[in-house]
Every structure is written in structure tokens, then in C-alpha cells.
Amino acid sequence: ETQAGIKEEIRRQEFLLNSLHRDLQGGIKDLSKEERLWEVQRILTALKRKLR
């Protein structure tokens, strides 16, 4: 995994995270989306740690 590859994956995950946040802010309670949001946040945290 290169730095560029990790950064690209971070961009993808952040896009997905923002999309999930928008969907959930629409007021629709969706447990699967909430679980996915937490999963994406965990992935992002792990990726950012790899960059250090």
C-alpha cells in the first residue's frame, strides 16, 4: 500500500461518510446506514493511522 493509494482510499471513504451523514440528516432512521457510518469511520481512522 502506497501513500498515494492510502490517500485515495481516504478520499473515497470520506466521500461515503459525507453521503451517509447527508442521508441520515434527512431525518430517516436507518439502522443499517448508521452501522455503515460507524464502520466507515473506523476504516478512516485506521487509514489515517497508516499515514503517520
Rank of each mutant, 00 (worst) to 15 (best):
R49T: 09
R52I: 15
L20K: 00
K50P: 02
Q3R: 10
K29C: 06
R52F: 14
L24G: 02
R52T: 14
R36M: 14
R12Q: 08
E8M: 07
L31Q: 13
I43K: 09
L24Y: 05
E35N: 08
R12D: 02
L17H: 02
R49P: 00
T2Q: 10
E14H: 07
E35G: 04
W38L: 13
E35K: 14
K29M: 06
E35I: 13
F15Q: 12
R12K: 11
Q13F: 15
F15L: 15
L47W: 01
I43P: 00
N18E: 13
K33H: 07
W38S: 08
R22F: 08
G27A: 07
Q13D: 03
Q3E: 11
E9K: 05
K7L: 15
L51H: 02
E39S: 03
K33W: 11
T2W: 14
I6H: 01
F15R: 12
E14I: 12
G5N: 09
E35A: 11
R22P: 02
L31T: 15
G27L: 06
A46V: 10
V40K: 01
R22I: 08
L44H: 00
E34P: 02
E8C: 12
L16W: 05
T45Y: 08
I10H: 00
Q3P: 10
Q13P: 01
R12V: 07
T2H: 08
Q41D: 03
D23A: 11
G5Q: 15
L31P: 14
K50H: 04
K33A: 07
G27D: 10
R49E: 15
V40Q: 02
I6S: 01
S32T: 08
E14N: 02
S19P: 00
R11H: 03
F15G: 08
T45K: 11
E14S: 05
Q13A: 13
E39I: 04
E34I: 14
A46P: 00
D30H: 06
G27S: 07
E34Q: 13
L37T: 02
I43L: 14
L51D: 02
K33L: 14
S32A: 15
R49F: 07
R12A: 05
E9I: 02
R11G: 03
K33P: 06
R22S: 08
N18G: 06
L16H: 02
L47I: 01
R36L: 11
L16G: 00
E14Q: 12
E34F: 15
I43A: 06
E8G: 05
Q3T: 12
L31F: 11
R36T: 06
L17I: 04
L51M: 03
F15D: 15
I43W: 03
L51Y: 03
Q13V: 15
Q13C: 15
Q13H: 13
I28A: 07
Q3A: 11
R12W: 03
K29T: 09
E1M: 11
E14M: 11
R49S: 11
L31E: 13
K29I: 15
I10G: 03
L47N: 00
L31K: 12
L47Y: 00
I28M: 09
L37S: 07
Q25S: 10
V40C: 06
E39M: 04
R36D: 06
I10T: 00
L24P: 03
L51C: 04
L16K: 05
L37Y: 14
I6Y: 02
R36I: 05
G5A: 15
E1N: 10
D30E: 04
L44F: 02
R52L: 15
T45N: 09
Q25L: 10
R11M: 09
E1L: 11
E39N: 04
L37E: 01
R49W: 05
L37F: 13
R36Q: 13
L51I: 04
L17V: 05
E34Y: 15
L16I: 13
E39A: 07
L31I: 10
A4H: 10
G5R: 14
L37K: 03
L44C: 02
L20T: 00
E34M: 15
R36A: 13
E34G: 04
F15Y: 09
R36S: 08
I10D: 00
E9W: 03
V40G: 01
R52G: 12
I28D: 11
I6K: 01
G5D: 14
Q41K: 14
Q13T: 13
R42D: 04
T2G: 06
L47S: 01
F15V: 13
G26A: 08
V40T: 07
L44D: 00
H21S: 09
L20M: 03
R42T: 06
W38F: 11
S32C: 11
E34K: 12
S19Y: 04
K50M: 08
Q13S: 03
A4E: 13
E1W: 12
A4M: 06
L51T: 01
L44Q: 01
L20C: 07
N18H: 11
G27P: 10
E34C: 15
H21Q: 14
L51W: 04
K7Q: 12
W38R: 15
D23V: 05
W38C: 14
G26V: 07
F15P: 01
K29R: 12
I10V: 02
Q41M: 10
T45M: 09
K33S: 06
E9D: 05
R11L: 08
Q25E: 08
K33G: 04
Q13Y: 15
D23N: 03
G26H: 09
Q25F: 07
T45G: 05
R11E: 06
S32G: 10
A4T: 06
A4C: 04
D23R: 03
R22C: 12
E35R: 12
E8T: 03
E35Y: 13
K33C: 03
F15C: 13
K7T: 04
R49V: 10
W38E: 12
